[in-house]
Design a protein around this nucleic acid. Structure first.
Lengths: 119, 119
DNA sequence: TGACGACATGTCGCATGGCGACATATGTTG
DNA sequence: CAACATATGTCGCCATGCGACATGTCGTCA
């Protein structure tokens, strides 16, 4: 008997993880498939963020379940490429995260200079 | 026989978790004990971030091991309060995280407006 | 032609970490 | 004294990150 309570996030309080944030960010520009995401994220982060496929496809599955991204059919779908695109909900989440990030940055910045005690 | 390879982070590439970031931020202002951290973080985040003690003391233990914070003796140590203070290393990490955050914010901001395809 | 590297998608299992629930004790106040 | 805030800590579940492995295609170059 295990009532596994779905941790459904109604309020949307928890911060996005770095992989998720980068994926949404990448898709905000244009639809991409998995491998392209890895390459783009590596490029846009200056080589610092390199997603492993384990991370990527796990995150993609959850994002699809969330409805933050969805499958996207490209006209020139050459091979087995499955592109994804950001949904309106996903874009909204990204915007919210950006706001959170800005707020956080301001707060940290302030705290780093308001040192009250010298040691 | 399990040679558990210490994931010692030489480069310092991974982002700080939200709890850790807030703890360092709070201690950047002044030394505090555990309970005071919880209260301060809740206040400074506008009530959004409420650390559970499970999260807090786990994080504190790791931060002590890292050498990013250390015990701090208050003169008026009334009871069993154990205060912590940020070390130079911890302050440096917080500064690095701030830089990372600023960079990230800029990038996300840019991507959210450079939409290349309309759907 | 065969080998190699880039492209592309996916699974598995381990370690880490967040967090709710619980346990305990003291100080404060109506 | 009852109730609540202060204060510190543990335990166990579960979600997630991520390296390792598996598999297949495509282009190209010796």
């Amino acid at each position: 008997m295990r009532h596994v309570v779905k941790k459904q996030d109604g309020g949307g309080n928890k911060p996005l993880s770095e992989p998720v944030l980068y994926i949404l960010m990448s898709l905000a520009e244009m639809p991409r498939h998995g491998y392209a995401l890895i390459k783009d994220i590596e490029a846009v982060s200056g080589g610092r963020v390199r997603l492993s496929t384990g991370t990527l496809f796990g995150a993609i599955r959850r994002l699809l379940e969330n409805g933050w991204i969805q499958h996207f059919q490209q006209e020139d779908t050459a091979r087995d490429k499955q592109a994804y695109r950001l949904t309106a909900a996903g874009r909204k989440q990204l915007q919210l995260e950006l706001d959170r990030l800005k707020q956080l940055t301001r707060t940290v910045h302030a705290r780093l200079r308001t040192r009250k005690t010298e040691t």
